[in-house]
Design a protein around this nucleic acid. Structure first.
Lengths: 360, 360
DNA sequence: ATCACATCTGGGAGCGTTACCATGAACGCC
DNA sequence: GGCGTTCATGGTAACGCTCCCAGATGTGAT
C-alpha cells in the first residue's frame, strides 16, 4: 500500500530520469552521467548508444538534482543602481545567459545611490544568501557598497569601472583608448575645432574618456598651443545635462564643427539642440557619443559611437564570479583575486558624423 | 578511512543545514522545514525557538535540495523578439523577481521575426526543457510562435497583446480605455484639432489605441462631422516612422495643436521634428506618447504618456505560468487555461502637454 | 467514558544526480 | 611474466530537503 503510493508520487513527474536512459541503453546511470557531462573515459560505442537513448526518450537532466549532487546552483547577486540606464536590458541578457550556463541563480536587487540605501540593499542580498555579487555601473564606483561587500568577504566583480579597483575583480573596456580612437577618427574626417562633454565626475570612466580625448588633440597638435584650453563642458550623463552643455558649446565663437559627448544620452541631446537651432547633423555639425545604448540607434540621425559589448561583459563578470566562488570553496582563498579583464570595444560609424563643410 | 573522506567532502560545504538548525532548536528537521515554509501546525513556542536558531546559525535553505524534494525549479522560457525594445529591461526585472520567488529558472531565447527563426527559437527552448513560455510583445502576436508552442502543449502567457488570444493566457492593460482617457485629457486641456499616429499594423494593441482615440473624439463630437476623417498617420512604432508621420501631420493646414503618438519612440520623434521647425513643446504643440518607456523621461521636455507597469505585468505572467504548470502536473489539464489578467494603467503627466495657445 | 476531529511533531523514504571508490581489462615496459 | 598505468564501467553513498504517514495530545460532542 505504502509502496504503491510512493510509486504514484514518482509517476506524477512526467520526467524521464537518468535511470530510464541507462536501462534503455543497457549501461549504468553513472555512464549516462558521464556521457551527458562530456567525460572522456567512455568508449565511442557506449557513448553513441547512450546518446541515442537520450534522444529517443527525450531525456533532459534534472537541474535541481544535478545542482544538489554537484554542490552547484548558488545564488549570485546583481546590484543595480540607476534603473533608467539602458545598460540594464542588455546587461541582464548577458548575465542570465551566463548564469544559466553555470547553473547558478541570479538575484536582482535595486539600490538607490545613498549610503543608507546601499547598505540596506547589500544586507538584503546577504539575507538572500548570495555568494558573490556583480556591480554594473554606476554602483561599481560606490565605496560604501564595496566596503560593505568586502566586509562580508564576498567576491565582487565590477563592470565598466573606468579604472580597476584593487579590492575587486573587474571587467571593462579601455575607455581611454576608445576615446582616443574616436577623437582621431574625427580629426581624420577633417575636424579641427572639436568640443567635448565630460561625463559624471564621480565615475572614473568619465576621466579616462576625457584623457583619451585630450591625448588625441595633443597628438594632432590641436591643443595646448598656449592660448586656450580645448572646448569642454561638464556633463552628468543625462540628456538634460547634455542639452545645457550643447547650448554653451554652440554659443562659442567660432562654434565647434564636432562635438564628442561622453555618452549617448548627451549626444542625443546635442543633436536635439542642434536641430532646434536649425543646424543639420552631420552637415553642419558632427556629433558622436559613447556606449552604443538603445538611444544611439533610435534617434535620427543614428549616432556614431563607441560600442561596449555589454552583454558579453556581463557574461564575463558572471564567469569570473563563478570561478572565484568555486576557487574559494576549494581553498578558502581571499575573495579579492585581482583578476581584471579588458574587453575589446568598437567604433560604430553611423550617420551623425561626417567631414566638416569648411575646414574649421 | 573512507568514512573520514566522506566527512571531509561534507565539511567542504560552508553550509548550515536544516539538521543543524533542528539540533540547535531541539526539534526535528521536519519542524524546521515547517517553520521556514510558513506552515500552520507549529506552536508559537516551537516556531520562535526555530526562528531564533535560524538567526543564530544564519541558516538559509539550500535551493537545489528544496527544488529537488518538492519537484519545483522548473525552467520557464522567455522568448523575446525586438531586443531594442525598451520594454526588455523592465520586463526582465519583473520576471526575474517573480521567478526567484517561485524558485524557477528563467531561460532567455532571442528570436528574429521570421517564421524560420521563430520555429528554431521555439525548438531551442524545447531542447532546453522549458515547461512554459512567456511571450512579451511583439512576439505575442506571432501566430507561428503560438502554433509551435501549442503543438508542444506548453502553457503560454502573452504579455501586452492588445486583444486576448483564445489559445493562451494573457496579461495586458486596457489599451482602448487608456487611449480614450489620454484623448479625453487632451480635449479637456482645450485641444480641438488632434492628430494621431498609429502603431505597427500587425500588433493588435495598435488598433485598440486607435479605437480609443476615435471614441473620445466622437464622444466630444470632434469627429465624424461629415466632412473629413480625423488627422491620422500610419506609424510603425519606430522613431523614424514617427519622424515621417510628424512631417506630414505638421504640414496639414491648419496644423494640429496636439499629437498623440501610439508609443514613446514616435512621440519623441514628433518632438524632434517640431523643434526642427522652430516649434516649442508644449507651447506651440502638445505631444503625448504611450508606454512610458525609458525615452519618455530621457528627452526634454519629458513626455506625458500612459504608463504600463511592465515589471508587474511580467511578474504576473510568471505567476500565471507557474500556476498553470503546477496545475497541469496535478491533473494533466489542458495548457490553454483561458486566464486573462487586466492590469491597471496610469496617465503620467509630464511637460510635453499643455493647453493650446489659441483655441484650435 | 467514547469517539470524531483538529492540532502539533517526528520518522523514514525518496527526489535525480554526481563523487568516490573499486574492479577488470588492455597495454606496455623492463 | 609480473607490475605499474591508463581506460572503461559499475556500485554505493551521499547531497539537503520535503512528502507521506503515524503517533501524540488536546477538545468538544455524543
Amino acid at each position: 500500500m505504502s509502496k504503491s503510493a510512493r510509486s504514484t508520487r514518482r509517476r506524477l513527474r512526467g520526467g524521464v530520469t537518468i535511470k530510464d536512459v541507462a536501462r534503455q541503453a543497457g549501461v549504468s546511470p553513472m555512464t549516462v552521467s558521464r556521457v551527458v557531462n562530456g567525460s572522456r573515459y567512455v568508449s565511442d560505442a557506449t557513448r553513441q548508444a547512450v546518446q541515442r537513448a537520450v534522444r529517443e526518450l527525450k531525456y533532459s537532466p534534472n537541474l535541481a538534482a544535478r545542482n544538489l549532487a554537484s554542490e552547484r546552483g548558488e545564488r549570485l547577486g546583481l546590484l543595480y543602481g540607476n534603473p533608467s540606464s539602458a545598460y540594464l536590458s542588455e546587461f541582464l541578457v548577458g548575465a542570465l545567459d551566463a548564469a544559466a550556463r553555470h547553473g547558478v541563480q541570479l538575484v536582482l536587487e535595486k539600490c538607490e545611490p545613498t549610503p543608507g540605501a546601499s547598505r540596506r540593499a547589500v544586507r538584503r542580498l546577504l539575507a538572500g544568501a548570495v555568494v558573490g555579487v556583480v556591480l554594473p555601473p554606476p554602483l561599481c564606483e560606490s565605496s560604501v557598497v564595496r566596503a560593505e561587500l568586502n566586509a562580508a568577504r564576498l567576491p565582487v566583480v565590477t563592470v565598466a569601472a573606468g579604472r580597476p579597483a584593487a579590492d575587486t575583480m573587474g571587467v571593462r573596456i579601455d575607455d581611454y583608448t576608445a576615446a582616443l580612437e574616436m577623437t582621431r577618427y574625427l580629426i581624420r574626417l577633417g575636424h579641427r575645432r572639436l568640443a567635448f562633454i565630460k561625463g559624471h565626475p564621480n565615475q572614473s570612466a568619465s576621466e579616462e574618456r576625457w584623457l583619451g580625448f585630450t591625448a588625441a588633440l595633443e597628438e594632432a597638435r590641436l591643443a595646448g598651443q598656449g592660448e586656450r584650453p580645448p572646448l569642454m563642458e561638464q556633463g552628468f550623463f543625462s540628456f538634460r545635462s547634455g542639452l545645457d552643455a550643447a547650448r554653451k558649446l554652440l554659443a562659442a565663437e567660432p562654434p565647434p564643427t564636432a562635438i564628442f559627448a561622453s555618452n549617448d544620452d548627451m549626444a542625443a541631446a546635442v543633436i536635439a539642440e542642434a536641430h532646434r537651432r536649425g543646424l543639420e547633423v552631420p552637415r553642419d555639425l558632427t556629433v558622436v557619443g559613447f556606449d552604443d545604448t538603445l538611444i544611439a540607434s533610435t534617434i535620427w540621425p543614428e549616432l556614431t559611437t563607441i560600442q561596449q559589448p555589454i552583454a558579453r561583459m556581463a557574461a564575463e563578470a558572471i564567469d569570473l564570479l563563478v570561478g572565484a566562488v568555486r576557487r574559494m570553496r576549494r581553498s578558502a582563498a581571499d575573495p579579492a583575486q585581482r583578476v581584471h579583464r579588458l574587453i575589446p570595444h568598437a567604433l560604430i560609424s553611423r550617420q551623425s558624423a561626417a567631414a566638416p563643410r569648411e575646414r574649421g
